[in-house]
Nucleic acid binder design. Structure first.
Lengths: 225, 225
DNA sequence: CAGGGCTTCAAACGTATGTTTCAAACAGAC
DNA sequence: GTCTGTTTGAAACATACGTTTGAAGCCCTG
């Protein structure tokens, strides 16, 4: 069928261009010429450029949030009443992301960058769309974080969650540039899984840092109960 | 004198609008009307929109990098040959930022957001400008970080520095929205100093996390060895 | 007060954008 | 084959943008 072919080609091209250049910096003409479709096809199939942006996110986020919900379900069931630990919660999220079926070799990294852009490049319509459409799994993640860090005050936890989001979104949003630098300068291949494997311990350690630290921290915290 | 008045009003308006909306999303007409100057004034005084963006960064970054250099000088002198610790290095940076003379009540947070945008919103010209103009103090900071974390492999250190940059830039770049939420929901005033006081321990703990933290996630997928 | 270098101003220029139009091409049902 | 609804195509539309222009205004020196 011709339609879904055109629609998918537009989504593929848009996803990649948005990730590379941002939303405002990507024109419909770039998208349609990369997708080898007519300019009018975007407005015909999606209605507007903003609606196309939403569709790009929905194509990934809808199955992802379903995967995430079941991962949280399994986790809570496995914990049998007890709240999951911080590490378990973070890994549930990470694994859900990594296990998503990947459309191409660029895989999930493109989409991580898009999420980072969505948060940073605060396009009003996009944030509203994401909150409205995918607010529930996000709230659930927040609740799990809260239960996993009962020792933190609300204010401390609030800020540390922001720091975690920042490290994640920013790292992911720096596209493949970071990985390229690493490959060229140190000759190291780096997959998204390996980045995640480094990021999660960093986040967990920061999240559980001793408060009001003024002196170099001894390597004493062993968070996993 | 009229000139510096116009130039400063343009810089003030541009700084705030860029921070609020991003670079591409801010038009010269928005800037000039907010600054109450003629549209042509930007091209007259700065030459182009890109040059205006550079000027906005230079106005803050030039005195800041000078302050930072002396802070590092003092720190290294105080340590008398021994490499400064991670906490000392982070605090030297943080204090230099916080102590910068602030133009208005929004203070440094606007500029932090601009730095975050500069990194994320990959405007080629901007990154080139920043690297060329302010690469030296950045390299020095990186060198200090390396000496403060000799236990880390190059690859680990590389990624953890990215995580730190991310948490910092992202948090700062979330403008006053985060602080507003906090004030409304929890009724807490939060200054930039208090955020920094929470951020630095988080970063230091993450930076010094035990490597290859074991994961409580069951079956399959063990993180990199 | 006359001249000349800055600075401001209103207006216009050329270009790129998102969107719309409407005819042509196509698909499947009868 | 013919008809009907859907999809594509080339072209145009209106608008917003960064930039340029050239005249007017300003301020200081002589």
């Amino acid at each position: 069928m011709a339609q879904s072919d055109t629609v998918d080609r537009i989504l593929d091209a848009a996803e990649e261009l948005f990730a590379d250049r941002g939303f405002s910096e990507t024109s419909l003409r770039m998208i349609t010429s990369k997708a080898k479709v007519n300019l009018a096809a975007v407005n015909y199939h999606f209605g507007s450029k903003n609606a196309l942006i939403h569709a790009v996110f929905a194509r990934f986020l809808t199955p992802f949030s379903a995967t995430l919900e079941t991962a949280f379900d399994e986790l809570e069931e496995r914990c049998d009443g007890q709240p999951p630990t911080l590490n378990q919660t973070l890994w549930a999220l990470t694994e859900s992301a990594v296990r998503m079926p990947q459309r191409n070799e660029k895989g999930i990294s493109i989409f991580m960058r898009l999420l980072g852009l969505a948060y940073t490049q605060s396009q009003g319509h996009l944030r509203k769309f994401l909150e409205q459409e995918y607010g529930d799994p996000f709230s659930r993640f927040m609740r799990l974080l809260k239960e996993a860090t009962p020792q933190l005050s609300s204010v401390d936890r609030y800020w540390r969650i922001q720091f975690m989001l920042g490290a994640t979104a920013f790292t992911m949003s720096s596209s493949d540039a970071l990985r390229d630098i690493l490959q060229n300068k140190l000759g190291v291949e780096t997959t998204i899984q390996e980045i995640a494997a480094r990021l999660v311990p960093f986040l967990a350690a920061g999240m559980q840092a001793e408060d009001k630290m003024l002196i170099p921290v001894p390597d004493s915290h062993t968070p996993v109960a």
